[in-house]
């Protein structure tokens, strides 16, 4: 028996650990699964939107991801890793969408438009800076932005990104380097 001591928590399931929630959801507990959806869904939505390049298909991708997760949860061995597991499912579904889109449209650089969420505000400088960076990130070329979000939000290794996107590792490094340079330049403008 292992006993972990932690500080008190207010409401039972809402404050429960990912591991406990994942175990319960694997056993069929919809309420526990809902807590996981609320806890990790927002990050998955951001992840999907960045990979897709717009939020048109975010609802679909995130919903599909959670349905897949619900079905496959009993196979997840370490419930504590449920967050990164969910992010992987979401990343893969998003990339599948992008691929399907390419098969249909036969274009590689789609949807250059910035997400609708980025309306300009006149607030504190750090926030303006954050918004400028967000816009810059959104306007990166698709392949750069996809590598970037898999790396930063999905916490993929370079090798994993390469496998997921079917690219050589050297290309992935190059794309990430270019994205970083662009973002650094944007940051410099706020000096």
């Amino acid at each position: 028996m292992t006993t972990v001591t932690r500080l008190a928590v207010p409401s039972a399931l809402d404050a429960a650990s990912d591991a406990l929630l994942a175990d319960r959801a694997a056993d069929g507990d919809v309420r526990a699964f809902e807590v996981l959806v609320r806890r990790h869904g927002p990050l998955m939505r951001v992840h999907a939107t960045r990979i897709l390049g717009s939020n048109d298909e975010t609802d679909d991708v995130v919903q599909e991801s959670f349905i897949t997760a619900w079905r496959q949860l009993p196979t997840l061995e370490n419930g504590a890793a449920v967050k990164s597991w969910l992010m992987r499912i979401c990343g893969r579904k998003s990339i599948d969408r992008v691929r399907a889109r390419r098969d249909h449209a036969d274009i590689t650089e789609t949807d250059a438009a910035a997400p609708a969420t980025l309306t300009p505000h006149h607030v504190a400088e750090t926030q303006e800076q954050a918004e400028a960076l967000a816009r810059c990130l959104a306007e990166l070329p698709d392949d750069q932005r996809r590598c970037w979000t898999l790396r930063e939000l999905g916490e993929y290794s370079y090798t994993d990104i390469a496998e997921e996107l079917d690219l050589p590792v050297s290309t992935v490094r190059g794309l990430l380097a270019r994205a970083r340079k662009t973002l650094l330049r944007e940051l410099e403008d706020w000096r």
């Binding site: 809902e34 959806v37 609320r38 609802d59 959670f66």
Partner: peptide, 12 residues
Amino acid sequence: WVATIIDSIRLE
């Protein structure tokens, strides 16, 4: 969006 997801898995 959360309710939509939960509704879609509830029957499974």
